[in-house]
């Protein structure tokens, strides 16, 4: 077994200004890390904008406020109570869960299969790579009109179904509460396979060819090698994708808003569209929107931590030993 040690990066020794190396340093020097000046701009930006905004949202979530110069009325935890008792909120949570599970499953299966195929000797491999990655790089706003064209009542899908004799399946995919979430999920799956492919393709490239060769010498077929060697090696990538997908599902806004605006009758509502609706409507309710944002933040952080912990629990003992 190969044993490695985690390298500790040590920079070149530099003479310190105002004191001899190893000599007695003042109390202030202990409190001010040497790299502070380098991280200060990023630190100010990060703390000043991002964390300040999070803190301010948390503060706003305890008020009834229409924004601007309107009066801010303290309402305690009413906004949170309202959120948890709002059926649309639970529809959004359900939709988020459905979207996450479906998109993650398709992304993993599709990504692994495409990556495995691209690592084989396949004709026109580069062309396939471009085709599979294009949905990842094109902005949702650019693609949304095309998706609408496909799914609308007189759109491409219904025309194809009609042409092949499946007219019994023709329906208003966007305008039905039973199919609108399906449209959003399918669009999400379509756009996500390419990203899964990129990560799994890179992950597969990291697998030591000697291990694969040894497996082949031992008589392992392609499927066996994929199942017993490749997939276990991709577990960290898969967990990372799970976290990213969950956060994407929680923050999902652009695709939904551009295609269904969360409708009809809130059937394709997500937290992101709920928050935007509260902010953009004439009767702006920034307090409620902030409460929804805080709930979103807490769910995202807690779930990410849980997935990460689960990931560590599942890390093979050998791999842990190998890293020690």
């Amino acid at each position: 077994m190969v044993t490695t040690t985690v390298p500790v990066t040590v920079g070149p020794a530099r003479p310190r200004r105002g004191g001899a190396p190893g000599g007695h340093r003042g109390r202030g020097a202990h409190l001010v890390p040497g790299g502070l000046r380098w991280i200060l701009p990023g630190f100010v930006l990060s703390v000043g904008l991002i964390y300040y905004s999070i803190g301010y949202s948390g503060y706003l979530s305890f008020f009834d406020w229409g924004g601007g110069r309107r009066a801010m009325t303290p309402v305690g935890a009413d906004n949170y109570v309202e959120a948890f008792s709002d059926p649309v909120f639970w529809t959004a949570i359900r939709n988020t869960a459905v979207f996450f599970v479906a998109v993650f499953a398709v992304q993993v299966v599709g990504g692994v299969l495409f990556a495995a195929a691209m690592h084989s000797k396949i004709y026109l491999a580069n062309l396939y790579k471009v085709i599979i990655v294009i949905p990842v790089v094109v902005a949702p706003a650019t693609l949304a009109p095309a998706h609408i064209q496909v799914w609308q009542t007189d759109g491409t899908l219904n025309r194809i179904l009609d042409a092949v004799g499946l007219d019994v399946l023709v329906q208003g995919w966007l305008g039905q509460s039973t199919t609108s979430l399906l449209v959003i999920t399918v669009v999400g799956c379509w756009g996500s396979v390419g990203f899964g492919f990129i990560l799994f393709y890179a992950g597969m490239a990291q697998i030591d060819p000697e291990i694969l060769e040894a497996a082949r010498i031992d008589g392992g077929g392609n499927l066996r090698i994929l199942y017993s060697i490749v997939l276990p090696s991709l577990r960290p990538t898969t967990f990372s994708l799970a976290i990213l997908n969950f956060i994407t599902a929680l923050k999902l806004f652009d695709t939904v808003w551009l295609i269904t605006q969360g409708g009809p009758a809130h059937s394709s509502e997500f937290l992101g569209t709920m928050i935007y609706s509260e902010v953009a409507a004439s009767s702006r309710n920034l307090g409620y929107a902030s409460a929804l944002s805080m709930i979103l933040l807490v769910v995202a952080v807690v779930t990410s931590v849980l997935i990460q912990r689960r990931s560590r629990e599942r890390t093979p003992v050998e791999a842990t030993v190998a890293r020690v």
Binding site: G175, Q176, T178
Partner: peptide, 21 residues
């Protein structure tokens, strides 16, 4: 007509027009 009422009205119309409901 308040914005809340208009939203409720739109929701009702969408449910009435929804062929799957």
């Amino acid at each position: 007509t308040t914005e809340t009422t208009l939203d409720a009205m739109v929701l009702a119309i969408q449910q009435v027009l929804d062929p799957s409901s």
